[in-house]
Structure formats: C-alpha cells, structure tokens
Amino acid sequence: MKRDKLRDFYRRIFVSRPFEVYISLAVFTTIAILFGFTFKWFFLEANWEVVSANLPLYLFGIFPDDQRWRPATWLVILICLSIVTIWGPRWWWLRKILPLTWIGVVPLGIFLLSGGLGILPVASRSWGGLTLTIFLMMCSSLIAFPLGVILAIARQSELPIVKYLSAIYIEVIRAIPLIAVLFFGQLLIPLFLPLGLEINRVSRAIFAFSLFVAAYVAEDIRGGLQSIPISQEEAAKSLGLSKLQITWLILVPQALIIALPALGNQAIGLLQNTTLMAILGLVELLGISQSLLANPAFIGSYIEVYLWLAFVYWFVCTFMALLSRHLEKTMSFSKPMLD
C-alpha cells in the first residue's frame, strides 16, 4: 500500500511536472551552496575585530571616556521605556504618564549629552555613533510632528492666505531633495545669523530635518482628515461646537489614528536619512564607519563594517516598527467612530 502511494506521488511530481522539479532542485541547490559559502566566510574568514574593537565608537562616537555613562544612561532609559511600551504597562497611572515620559526623554537627552547644572559640558562635535543617530531622529520628530499637524490644519483652513501659504510651503519642501535642505541648514544658515551668534551643527541638522519631515507629516495627517466623513462635522455643529473645538476634539484625534502607520514610516525613514549627515561632517553611525575604514588597520573590511551597520539599522527600525504597531493596537478602540 505504501509502495503504491509512493509510486503515485512520484508520477504526479516527477513525471507530470519534470520542468518544475528540476527548476526547484536547481534553486535549492544554489541556495544551499550560497549558504555554505556565507556560513564559512561569516564564521571563519571575516575579520570582526573592526566591530568588536570599536563598539564604544559605534555607540558614543568620540564622547569623552569618563563621561560615556551619560549617553549610556540615556540609551538604557530609551530601551527600558520601549520595552515597557511594547509589553503594555499594567498600572493605569503608568499608562497615563507614558506619553509624557516619551516627550520628557528628549530634554533629558539634551541635558545628559550637552551637560550643565553640575555636569561637565561636552561640545556637540564630540557626539556621535548610535547616540547621535537616535538623538537626531527623536528631536526632529518631536518638532516635526506638531509642526506637521499645524500645517495640515492650515491647509484645510477657509482663510485663503493661510491655506495657500501652507500649501506652497508643503509643495516646495516636497519638491526639494533632503540633501539640499541639509546643505542649506549646515552651510547657509550661519550666513544669515548676526555676528557673534552661532548655532552648532547638531542643532542645524535638527532644524533642517524638522522642516523637511513636517511637510510629509502634514500630508499624512491631511489624508487622515479627508477620510473622516463630513457627517461627523455636521453632527458636531448641530451640538453647538465651535470650529476650533470640532478640529481639535473630533477631527484631529481621528486623523492621527488613521495616519499612524504612515507616521511610523516617516519616523523610520527619518532614522535612515540621518546617514546623510555623514556627508556633512557629523559622525553618526555611517560617519563612524567611514572613519574606521580610513584607518590603515581596518582597510578592506568593507563587507564586515556595512553588514554590521545594516544589522544595527535593521534592529533599531524593527524596534520602532513594533512600537508603532503597538500604538496602533492601543488606539484602535477609537476606529469605530469613523464608521
């Protein structure tokens, strides 16, 4: 009986579809050979000393050795806060203060990195590595998000001047490459400043990123506003709510829920776009890698360095995607309002 079943299986697969079988065998064989070569190179031939010997540089840049506890503390707080957010706090009071805690992490990072109030000041040119990458992303997001909300509401305004000015800003920024905006922030802004006033490179980068991302955030939120049925606005008017109350209490919260996936993508894209700052002299993750590859001791270790860099970005972006997905689930209770 078993022999008959095997014979039928052989006829159905190897006789009736020989071409598909041979193609599948060739593909699996190629994958196995490539996997074998990759495994051999990864564990036996690759020189991972370029990564293991420079982990502090990848994490903190050239931050002073005796002060590295400060960026390390900030990164640990971020990791703990992310884990608590993804798992979901059990206590109601912790759920209430969690959004404020996320907002407070940014000024805490500024204080720990820059110093002051009894902590040794450290110049922004000493910041670098993963710390600087995440700092640029979080500060830019904190500024770009409310600016994008204001631009989206302004573009929906009934006042022609407000509507057209916001539309012009959004369309102009979206038509300019990000690298051009960053060059403007790094090279042209100092020319317009009065004598004696100087803004460091990190602040100029945050300013440029915020202006650029705010235009895309505005379009995401505008899409959320347009997807809300007009009947909700009419019902709110019948209850006697003002235009301002309708916008901020009814329309904007629902638009944010709808736009959450797109906003999460914007945050991940912003993190990846921080690599452009390596062109302009900031030693974030990519800048650290380029400086290490210029070291005669690590010349030729391009594959190891960029594989490590890809893994770090994949890990951080995956963590951010999990945070965004959790936020979507926790706020999904408001979605029935859209029906």
Rank of each mutant, 00 (worst) to 15 (best):
T131E: 02
K40W: 12
G300P: 04
N273Q: 14
K243G: 06
G264F: 09
A46Q: 04
W41G: 02
S289R: 05
A255I: 03
L256A: 00
F19S: 13
R155F: 03
L187N: 14
E49F: 12
I199S: 01
T133P: 01
V316N: 01
R155I: 02
L78D: 03
S210I: 05
A321D: 11
M331K: 00
A235G: 10
Y10M: 08
L120C: 04
I230P: 07
S238E: 04
N200P: 02
R325G: 05
W74V: 01
S114E: 08
G88F: 01
V181I: 15
S231I: 11
N200K: 07
R204G: 03
I206L: 09
R12T: 11
Y58I: 09
L260T: 07
I258P: 11
Y10N: 12
Q266E: 14
V316T: 03
A262H: 07
P71E: 01
D220K: 10
L280E: 03
I199F: 07
P177R: 12
T131F: 09
L251C: 09
A259H: 05
L75W: 03
Y164M: 11
Q232I: 11
L6Q: 12
K40I: 05
R12E: 14
D65K: 04
K163V: 02
M337V: 04
L136I: 08
I279M: 15
K237L: 14
C317K: 00
V76G: 05
L293Y: 05
I83K: 00
I83L: 12
F42E: 00
A180F: 15
G185D: 00
A53K: 11
A218Q: 07
A46T: 02
W127F: 15
I257F: 02
R125N: 13
V181E: 02
Q254L: 14
F184C: 08
I13S: 09
F39I: 10
F192C: 00
I83D: 05
T318Q: 06
R70W: 05
V149A: 13
I199L: 14
V217W: 11
L338W: 02
I228L: 10
Q266K: 09
S166V: 11
W91K: 15
P261W: 03
E233I: 04
S52W: 13
F207R: 10
L322F: 11
